[in-house]
C-alpha cells in the first residue's frame, strides 16, 4: 500500500492538475484573438445572400450564436459553463460543418488518425530501436557506420517532404498506391479481406513517409544510448565472464538502453492525437490532422477547442500510463 500512497496517488493528482491547467489555457487563449466568431459567422451568412436581415432578426441571430459559442456573460461565467459542457462531453456544434456536434466530427476522424499514426510510430520505434541498438553495440563495424550516415541523412528530412517524394514516386511515376483518401470511394467498412487490403493500401504511403523519418530518429538516439551502455562496467564484466555475445547484446545492452526510449515512445504516442497535420493534408487522409486544418482555415473555434482538449488529455494520459508502468520496467524506480 505504500507504493499506492507514495507513487500512484501523487501521479494521478499531477495528471489532473496538468489537464486542468492545459484546458484552462485552451479556454483563455482564443479569447485574446481579435476575431469575433459571432461576427464572422454573420458575415458568412450574409455573404451567402442574406444581406437584408432586419435588425431584430440580426439581433436574435447574434444572441443565439453567442449562446451557441459559449460566449454569453462574463468571462468567468463562460468559464464555468465551459467546464460544465466539457464534463458532459459537449463542445458545441462545429461551425464549419454546422450543425454536426464537434464530438461527432472528432469521433469520426480520430479512428483514422489513431490507426495510421499509432501503427507508424510503433513500427518506426520497433525497427529503429532494434537496428539502432545492434548498431550501437557494434559501433566500430563498418556497416554500423554506413547505417548511421544513412540515418543521419534521412532524419532531418521534413516528413512532408518525404510525403511529396513518395507521392511523386509511387503515385505518379510508378502508380501502385492510391494517393488520396482513407478508402476507395464506395467502400463500406466490413471485416472482409478486400476491405482490409484497401485500408492498408491507402494507409501505406502516408505511413511510410512517417516511418522512414521516424526510423532515422529512433535509430540515431538508440545507437547513441547503446554505444554508451556498451562501455558500462557491467557490460565489460559480462564480456569478461564469458557470457555469450547475443545474451550481452539483448539482456544487458539493449535492456538498459531501452528505458529512456520507452518514455519517448509514450510521449510520441500521446502526440499522435494531434495528428500528422501535413501528412494527412497531403494524402487527403480523413484523420484528425485534416480536420484540424479545416477548422483553422474556416475559423471553427469550437472544433479547434475540441481537438486541443482531446490532445491535452491524451498526452497527459500517455505520460500517466508510462509513469505508472515504469516501475515494472525499471526496478530502480520501484522503491523511490
Amino acid at each position: 500500500m505504500r507504493i499506492l500512497k507514495r507513487y500512484i496517488i501523487p501521479r494521478i493528482i499531477q495528471f489532473f492538475v496538468v489537464v486542468f491547467v492545459g484546458i484552462t489555457i485552451t479556454f483563455i487563449v482564443p479569447r485574446f484573438t481579435p476575431l469575433d466568431p459571432v461576427q464572422m459567422t454573420i458575415n458568412r451568412v450574409a455573404s451567402y445572400g442574406a444581406q437584408y436581415l432586419d435588425a431584430e432578426t440580426l439581433e436574435h441571430l447574434k444572441q443565439t450564436l453567442t449562446d451557441l459559442y459559449g460566449l454569453k456573460g462574463t468571462v468567468f461565467e463562460q468559464y464555468v459553463r465551459f467546464w460544465d459542457r466539457l464534463l458532459h462531453g459537449d463542445f458545441g456544434p462545429s461551425l464549419a460543418m454546422f450543425p454536426t456536434p464537434v464530438m461527432e466530427v472528432i469521433s469520426n476522424s480520430i479512428p483514422w488518425t489513431l490507426g495510421l499514426l499509432i501503427m507508424s510510430v510503433l513500427i518506426a520505434w520497433l525497427i529503429g530501436n532494434f537496428i539502432g541498438g545492434i548498431a550501437g553495440y557494434f559501433s566500430e563495424k563498418r556497416w554500423a557506420k554506413v547505417l548511421s550516415v544513412i540515418a543521419a541523412t534521412i532524419y532531418p528530412i521534413p516528413y512532408y517532404f518525404m510525403a511529396l517524394i513518395l507521392i511523386i514516386v509511387f503515385g505518379y511515376l510508378i502508380p501502385v498506391f492510391p494517393i488520396i483518401g482513407g478508402l476507395s470511394i464506395g467502400m463500406q467498412p466490413s471485416f472482409s479481406f478486400g476491405f482490409i487490403i484497401d485500408l492498408i493500401k491507402h494507409a501505406f504511403l502516408p505511413s511510410l513517409s512517417l516511418v522512414i523519418v521516424g526510423i532515422g530518429w529512433w535509430f540515431l538516439s538508440m545507437k547513441a544510448l547503446s554505444s554508451t551502455t556498451k562501455s558500462e562496467d557491467y557490460v565489460q564484466y559480462a564480456e569478461a565472464a564469458g557470457i555469450p555475445q547475443s545474451k550481452i547484446l539483448f539482456g544487458y545492452v539493449m535492456k538498459n538502453s531501452l528505458l529512456p526510449q520507452v518514455t519517448n515512445l509514450a510521449l510520441s504516442l500521446g502526440g499522435v492525437f494531434n495528428g500528422a497535420l501535413v501528412t494527412e493534408y497531403f494524402f487527403a487522409y480523413p484523420g484528425i490532422g485534416q480536420t484540424l486544418y479545416m477548422a483553422v482555415t474556416n475559423g471553427d473555434f469550437n472544433l479547434m477547442m475540441g481537438i486541443s482538449v482531446f490532445s491535452i488529455f491524451s498526452i497527459a494520459s500517455a505520460a500517466l500510463v508510462i509513469d505508472l508502468l515504469y516501475p515494472l520496467i525499471d526496478p530502480r524506480v520501484r522503491y523511490r
Binding site: 562496467d233 557491467y234 565489460q236 564484466y237 564469458g242 557470457i243 526496478p331 530502480r332
Partner: peptide
C-alpha cells in the same frame, strides 16, 4: 575468473542477482 574493483558497478542494474547467476552458469 575475475573479481573487479569494489567501486565498479559490475552488476546489471535492471536484472535480479539470481538471473545474473543463472546467466553465468548457463553460459558455461
Amino acid at each position: 575468473s575475475y573479481i573487479p574493483q569494489g567501486s565498479m558497478n559490475i552488476l546489471n542494474p535492471t536484472v535480479r542477482i539470481k538471473k545474473q547467476f543463472l546467466n553465468i552458469i548457463k553460459a558455461h
